[in-house]
Design a binder for these strands. Structure first.
Lengths: 206, 206, 206, 206
DNA sequence: TATGAATGAGGTTTCATTCAT
DNA sequence: CATGAATGAAACCTCATTCAT
């Protein structure tokens, strides 16, 4: 967003809003949505509760804004990775690595995202929920189109590129989840070639 | 557990406990842990709050019992699927199908399981959390040993069977997740061959 | 009470009642009336809640029975001490010592007695409260009559014997209270002569 | 505490805190700690439960604050009485009278203090309990030092002043307790000379 | 009569939200 | 606008008492 042209007052407000979101991200990802009180967020952000409510009409909406902003940032970075130029498999390698980077740099956040987004009784309005799913879907579609290109270029075998993309997504998640259980065993990056190898060559003897 | 030899009083109590667990499963999976009150569970189970507390020492422990019992049942069925006799790839096919059956038969439950288990500030004691992870890990190991056998039998190519198992797990989850978004598009079973195909042959052109 | 002539059934019942009272005494004096549940008493006495309610119509009445029985026992022993034969001052010495013995042998019980008896919102019906006060009053009167005899015998100076008795009571209690704070400093008995000395000679220079 | 220099907001809060303490004192001393609910206190103070909890972190702590503030006020007044100038016996007379005044002006409060402070399972943290005992002890020591001075001035006979002080304390309490039983019989003040007479001259014939 | 499972009112405490200052 | 004190509904849990067996 272009903030340069705004009057000072408005710029200040945006900055304050961001500070509150930052505090909220920290707290939510440390303790989970339900275990953080509005008072706590306000205190951490060094604002009054009233101020907080002048930016967000409810705790729920604050949470949604937060999820949305994080989702959009991640989405942008992952989309960029998928739109890089180069051989399809190289692009996918980059994507797999970027997924890892985002994940490992923001474990807590990502956990929050995973758990609360898919949770039942999640405090998100369905509009936001859908928006998040839409972003996710868009990403899978983009990956599919990379794969499709790979097929056209003869690098990948025939097959439904969307299915392939879904599978890739799953493999990445599974390895990320593994890493999450024992982060100290080895850095996630070590898995990047493994993931690609399995994804590309499959399990069967040729 | 053998309930036949028990005195009637005790049998009744077990039945009542189960009734409460049933009500809790329904409610939790409809609305999520935090959005269900103890009163509500009691009402749905047609017991008093006090009765509920005579079976479970807290809402948290009730939830844990519930998760554990579901996890153990699922685990048993999946383990059985993996221990069936036959060619490695046929066993895996059976496993993929069974995963689907469990998932689609208990969507809400599974959603609950997914969301709350991994959630931060999850209300589960780490003991239960660990137990669940242990069961999961055991399953992956069992799948890995099936794959290992496949390698020995010349059906699968060389490679770390554990990694393969993790990848398979991921692919299954990804397709299940897809199905969850649009259950009406096609039955999950239609995906079983797709999953196996991708898992076995990979994406690369030969 | 004479229990010998009773039918076996009734004797048994009395024994059970006593067992429950014993358990209740222990628990109440360990944790205070409000912090002991009926379930707990029943468990400690190895009876069912129902059985307990067949003996006492409520927790409150159970408590009253207990207080009454203890009060009566103490009263009997103290009265006996005051009715012993001998010089008035020797009798009082015996009484002071007996008070100490009862107190130090049943500290917890006595604490309970002290605190809950005089407490506001005490769970005792006024009838029982009055009964306890009556017993106390009787004791003071008895002490007063000993003192009166002492006056007649020329051992004590003229003055209202009732007031004297009240004062003696107060001095005893004060020293008991002191002892309660630091029981290990010295045995209560060491104070018996001190109490009598102060009571008899007063503080003023002659 | 100097409240004059404070910002208005803070002054208001202190006032509100005091209002709640007042309501709590009334209720506790009418019905006893356990028989008063937080809701009730809030209602009587014309605040919400939440407001109450913004001042005191729990019912228990509220109770402690209350006990402490009353204990300190009483302590201050009694200490002042003991530190007045004049003959030792006159000072003690003043003290005995002041004890009576405090007691009879706050019967309910004092009852509360007596009963709950010494009670088992009393809801007071040991820190507060100790503080109260400390104040009490300090008072006895102060009385002892007055008596000691009396001894030096030749007004009181030789003897352990601390024991004398304890005894005086006991006599006062006993007469207060008597008065409590039948307040209407005679005003407590009538007992002041009696108490001093017994305390100073003792019971024995000279 | 004895049992102990079941009841449910009532207790303490939290926290999203409002609003006078 | 910002503040933060105040609100009060609703949560979890306890326990004296009842009653079917």
């Amino acid at each position: 967003m272009n903030t340069e042209k705004m009057p000072r007052r408005e710029r200040e407000r945006l900055r304050h809003r961001a500070l509150i979101l930052d505090a909220a991200i920290e707290l939510f990802s440390e303790k989970g949505y339900q275990n953080v009180s509005v008072q706590e967020i306000a205190r951490r952000a060094e604002f009054s509760v009233g101020a907080l409510y002048s930016f967000f009409e409810s705790k729920e909406r604050l949470y949604e804004s937060l999820v949305l902003s994080v989702a959009e940032e991640h989405h942008a970075r992952l989309l960029a990775a998928l739109r890089r130029e180069g051989e399809a498999s190289a692009v996918l390698r980059g994507y797999v690595a970027e997924r890892g980077r985002l994940f490992t740099d923001n474990i807590k956040l990502v956990r929050l995202y995973f758990s609360e987004t898919r949770a039942l009784g999640s405090p998100m309005q369905s509009a936001v929920c859908e928006k998040v799913h839409e972003l996710y879907h868009e990403l899978v579609l983009e990956a599919a189109s990379v794969i499709e290109r790979g097929v056209r270029e003869g690098a990948f075998r025939e097959g439904d590129p969307y299915h392939m993309a879904v599978a890739l997504e799953g493999i990445i998640n599974a390895f990320l989840f593994c890493w999450l259980q024992e982060p100290e065993r080895q850095p996630y990056e070590a898995n990047v070639p493994v993931i690609l190898d399995i994804f590309l060559r499959g399990a069967a003897a040729r």
